[in-house]
């Protein structure tokens, strides 16, 4: 059974269900549970649900210690950029402890953070900084694009025995979609093929998935059938699904809201260039944000981000029906 829920409610539902299922799950962060009847605290109590000071290093560092001591903390960080003030804990503490101890400890924790708030939040709250968490052995990074995936990936993240950065896209917060009721888990490392097509493979994450799908509809009107893949988890990354799609289409356009040299699309491009070069009928094209601090002014903000026209142009270029997009 499923019913419609907004993306953000689907995440809350997963946390709530996991807390009910497993009493070692904690949920805490700034401005959370400041009154006794707040959701979560009324159901799970003040031992497990707490408001914290504005102290990201302490919040995330305590999650590491609590996890090593047998709990499963979920830290509410609100914005991904707030992790930057505690980056040592995220990238050089949480993912190192298991390895450095020779497997004697594990660090099951979830860092829940929104990102990509391209809605007038200007330079410091709009970033897509996913790349800063990639390439860190031991750290998992997930970025759901639908309410159902948001629920299923959060539940999996909480049950996972490793540290997970759970990135939810702010512009998807109120997007509604079918969400399965009850226990629902989406496995890590398994991409979702959102649209099938034989002419070109489009890979997009987060908010860009909907834009890629919109571009695919636009292109369908021109007789071009795009396959749209959402990796869903960036670490681990499901390269086999992407490579088998490229084997079918021979063309790859990567869409990413991050600036060009900090996008996961660069990682995918590198893997396909190395492992799928012979499959390609055209060069790989990346459609990314421009290399700019996201501007406040609305037309400028829109200008630096990929949109469906830019995605469609890139597809036409790899099909040889239009010049390469800038």
């Amino acid at each position: 059974m499923s019913r419609e829920l907004p993306y953000i409610a689907a995440i809350d539902e997963a946390i709530h269900q996991e807390m009910a299922r497993d009493e070692t799950v904690l949920y805490y962060g700034q401005n959370l549970a400041t009154v006794e009847n707040a959701p979560f605290v009324s159901d799970f109590g003040a031992d497990r649900v707490r408001v914290t000071p504005i102290s990201e290093t302490a919040e995330i560092g305590m999650a590491v210690g609590a996890a090593m001591a047998g709990l499963r903390p979920v830290v509410e960080l609100y914005m991904a950029e707030f992790m930057l003030v505690a980056m040592d804990q995220v990238t050089n503490e949480a993912p190192r402890m298991r390895a450095m101890s020779g497997g004697q400890v594990k660090v099951p924790l979830v860092l829940k953070a929104g990102y990509g708030f391209a809605a007038g939040w200007a330079g410091q709250h709009t970033g897509v900084i996913t790349n800063m968490f990639l390439g860190v052995p031991g750290l998992k990074v997930v970025a759901p694009a639908t309410p159902a995936d948001a629920k299923g990936l959060m539940a999996t993240a909480i049950r996972d025995d490793d540290p997970v950065v759970f990135l939810h896209h702010y512009l998807l917060t109120l997007v509604h979609g079918d969400v399965p009721e009850g226990e629902y888990l989406v496995p890590f490392g398994q991409a979702s093929v959102r649209r099938t097509g034989g002419d070109v493979t489009l890979v997009a994450t987060g908010w860009m998935v909907d834009r890629a799908l919109a571009a695919a509809e636009l292109l369908a009107g021109e007789g071009i059938e795009a396959e749209v893949i959402d990796p869903r988890t960036l670490a681990p990354l499901d390269m086999p699904t992407i490579l088998s799609s490229v084997e079918k289409t021979g063309r790859l356009v990567l869409v990413d809201q991050a600036p060009r040299h900090s996008a996961v699309s660069g990682v995918i491009a590198g893997e396909v260039a190395e492992h799928g070069f012979g499959l390609l009928k055209a060069p790989i094209v990346q459609v990314t944000a421009l290399d700019a601090t996201v501007p406040y002014s609305e037309p400028l903000e829109a200008h630096v981000l990929p949109d469906e026209d830019r995605i469609a142009s890139a597809v036409r270029s790899v099909l040889g029906t239009a010049p390469v997009a800038a």
Partner: peptide, 12 residues
Amino acid sequence: QGIPHAAGAAWA
């Protein structure tokens, strides 16, 4: 950086 780890263990 180990100081908050200890506090997390103390919370546990």
